[in-house]
């Protein structure tokens, strides 16, 4: 089947085509400076999508990512004055813990991931409200720059957000393709029952996958809060839909097992190009959510592996 052979290459072909179409309509779009700042702006979303990739890769979903990111914008802002750069560690630990709890509830207590992560998201939202006193908080500019200034600076014209995203991508790529955990993850994604039968500790692998998702959502929140110099329980609202879209249009299907973190980079860039193309084509910003919702449906339907679903519930 030729279609089957083209399918893995569709994401980057789509990205290239979109870039060319938007570039043809307005050549300003293709200026390196514009492309770089577009990429830098999408980095918090990319990091969240990077984590979401693991949850989707094993056939689950993480609906708590946005709430966890919201929570860490608050944690980062609240702990910055006392802990300085240590605030990052608290954020990462909080993300890991919330993700691991989702994973535990899903695998050990047999609660489907869309419910367990929704519930854990509720807990994260409550925590954010509690920590922030239900207000939007602001970081002290001096403190922010001394602890986290390195996250948002520029070197040789390259914004540091891109470097942060790149380092995380390389780390996750290493984890996915060069470690036993990565291979086990692939086995679980390809067929959970077979993975159990071959003696893998599937519970542990799935818990780690959700923990990674939580951790990266937390880092996304941290970067976003440093970028905006503040935190609030609703700061990262609007991240969930594009994050899921990024994973799916990148070519990691809802049924898991194929795709991976590099696909998610491509998917995120597709999201970024579509977003800025709406600007160039003067499409009203209020259309954006609807457009992404429709793209999500198309992407799910096009990528999902129906042979894995005996009954579509």
């Amino acid at each position: 089947m030729t279609l089957e052979r083209i399918k893995p290459h569709l994401p980057w072909i789509t990205l290239l085509a979109l870039v060319l179409i938007v570039g043809a309509a307005d050549s300003n779009f293709l200026r390196p400076q514009n492309l770089i700042s577009m990429t830098a702006d999408i980095m918090p979303l990319f990091i969240m999508a990077l984590g979401m990739t693991f949850a989707i890769y094993i056939g689950g979903i993480d609906l708590s990512a946005q709430s966890v990111a919201n929570m860490t914008t608050v944690i980062a802002t609240v702990t910055l004055p006392t802990l300085g750069i240590g605030a990052a560690l608290v954020c990462i630990a909080a993300g890991l813990i919330f993700g691991a709890i989702s994973g535990y509830i899903t695998t050990k207590l047999l609660v489907p991931s869309f419910v367990s992560t929704l519930a854990v998201g509720g807990v994260a939202y409550s925590s954010a409200q509690y920590l922030s006193g239900q207000r939007a908080l602001y970081m002290d500019a001096g403190l922010r720059d001394s602890s986290f200034g390195w996250m948002v600076g520029k070197t040789a014209g390259i914004p540091h957000e891109i470097l942060v995203g790149l380092v995380l991508l390389l780390a996750m790529l290493f984890l996915q393709s060069r470690t036993t955990f990565g291979r086990a993850l692939k086995a679980v994604g390809a067929g959970e029952l077979a993975a159990v039968a071959s003696g893998l500790n599937v519970t542990r692998i799935k818990v780690i996958a959700f923990a990674l998702s939580g951790m990266l959502a937390a880092i996304a929140g941290l970067l976003f809060s440093v970028k905006l110099s503040g935190g609030s329980p609703t700061l990262a609202n609007g991240f969930l839909l594009p994050a899921i879209v990024a994973v799916l249009v990148g070519g990691t299907p809802l049924t898991g097992g194929v795709g991976g973190v590099v696909n998610t980079l491509i998917g995120t860039l597709i999201v970024a190009v579509i977003r800025s193309s709406m600007l160039y084509f003067e499409i009203d910003a209020t259309m954006q959510q609807m457009v992404f919702g429709i793209i999500l449906i198309v992407a799910i339907a096009a990528t999902i592996d129906r042979s894995k679903l005996r009954v579509v519930k």
């Binding site: 809802l254 919702g293 449906i297 519930k313």
Partner: peptide, 23 residues
């Protein structure tokens, strides 16, 4: 018709709905 699991089909439709209301 598209054989998409209901939680995802409906989540996506929900996003479309909210987007449409915003529009």
């Amino acid at each position: 018709k598209l054989k998409v699991p209901s939680f995802m089909a409906s989540l996506a439709m929900g996003f479309v709905g909210t987007g449409f209301a915003l529009l």
